[in-house]
C-alpha cells in the first residue's frame, strides 16, 4: 500500500508537468500569431475566463453535473458490459446472438444518435443514460468476453478438480483472472463516457459543461470557451485517477505480481 501512495504522488506530479507543457505549447502557438488573438487567446486571458466562471459558481455546478453523469454512466455501463460478458460466458448461444448486435451498434457515433434519441426519450436523465451506456458499454464487454474466453485451461481444470460448479469457477477463477483486461476496457470507456456526456449536453442538454460550452460560444466569450476545454481535458485525468485507483483495488494482484506500475 505504501508504494501505491508514492506512485499516486508521482502520478500527481506528472500530471502537473504535463499540464504545464500543454500550457506552454498553447502560449507559444498563441504568441506565433498565426491566428488573431481574438480566436486563439493567450493563457492569461483563458485563466481570467476561468476565474470569472469560478466566481460566478456556474463552472463548479456544471463540472459536478458532467463528472457525476460520466461516472454514473461508466459505472452502469461497466456493470452492464461485464454482466453481458458473463451471460455470454454462461450461455454461448446468447453470446452468438448478441455478437452481431454489438458489432452493428458499436460503430454508431453518439452525435448521430442524440437528435433522434431526444424524440424518443425526451431531455431528461433517460437520454443521458441511453447515450452514455450505448457508447461506453462496448470496451468492458468486448474485453470481458475476450478475457473470460482466454482464461487458461489449467486454472479451470484445477477448479473442476476441486469440485467447483460452473458458477463457482466463473466467479472464483475466471472473473478474477479476467479483471485486468476488463479494467483496461473500463479505462478506455471512461474517456469515451466523458466525451459522450459532453456531446449529449451540447446537442440536447440544459446544464453541464457541454451546455456551458455552447452557451459561452453563443455569447462570443471565446476565452471562457477555451477555459472550459481545459476543464474537459483535466476531467480526463480525474477519471483516469479514479479508474486506476479502483483497478488497484480490484485487479491490483496482477500489477503486484508482475511488478509493474498500474
Amino acid at each position: 500500500m505504501g508504494s501505491f501512495r508514492l506512485l499516486e504522488i508521482l502520478a500527481g506530479f506528472r500530471a502537473i508537468i504535463s499540464f504545464l507543457i500543454i500550457i506552454v505549447t498553447w502560449q507559444s502557438i498563441a504568441s506565433l500569431g498565426l491566428v488573431p488573438e481574438k480566436y486563439f487567446p493567450s493563457i492569461l486571458a483563458i485563466a481570467a475566463g476561468f476565474r470569472d466562471m469560478m466566481m460566478s459558481g456556474e463552472l463548479v455546478s456544471a463540472e459536478l453535473r458532467t463528472i457525476s453523469r460520466a461516472l454514473i454512466g461508466v459505472a452502469s455501463a461497466s456493470m452492464l458490459g461485464i454482466g453481458l460478458a458473463v451471460l455470454g460466458d454462461l450461455f454461448p448461444s446468447f453470446r452468438r446472438g448478441f455478437a452481431p448486435i454489438a458489432a452493428l451498434v458499436q460503430p454508431i457515433p453518439p452525435a448521430a444518435l442524440v437528435p433522434m434519441a431526444v424524440f424518443m426519450l425526451g431531455l431528461g436523465p433517460k437520454l443521458y443514460a441511453f447515450i452514455v451506456i450505448l457508447v461506453t458499454v462496448w470496451p468492458p464487454y468486448f474485453n470481458g468476453v475476450a478475457a473470460l474466453a482466454s482464461v487458461s485451461d489449467v486454472q479451470i481444470r484445477t477448479g473442476q478438480m476441486l469440485g467447483l460448479s460452473r458458477w463457482q469457477i466463473l466467479r472464483q477463477i475466471k472473473l478474477p483472472a479476467a479483471m485486468p483486461e476488463i479494467f483496461a476496457g473500463i479505462r478506455y470507456a471512461s474517456s469515451i463516457s466523458l466525451i459522450a456526456v459532453v456531446v449529449a449536453e451540447m446537442l440536447a442538454g440544459h446544464d453541464g459543461l457541454g451546455f456551458l460550452l455552447i452557451r459561452k460560444a453563443f455569447a462570443i466569450r471565446i476565452p471562457e470557451v477555451y477555459a472550459l476545454m481545459f476543464v474537459c481535458a483535466v476531467n480526463g485525468l480525474i477519471m483516469n485517477t479514479i479508474v486506476n485507483g479502483l483497478r488497484w483495488k480490484f485487479a491490483g494482484w496482477q500489477s503486484r505480481m508482475t511488478g509493474q506500475a498500474a
Partner: peptide, 8 residues
C-alpha cells in the same frame, strides 16, 4: 487529457 476532448 487529449483523449477526453470531445470532437465538437
Amino acid at each position: 487529457m487529449l483523449a477526453t476532448l470531445p470532437p465538437p
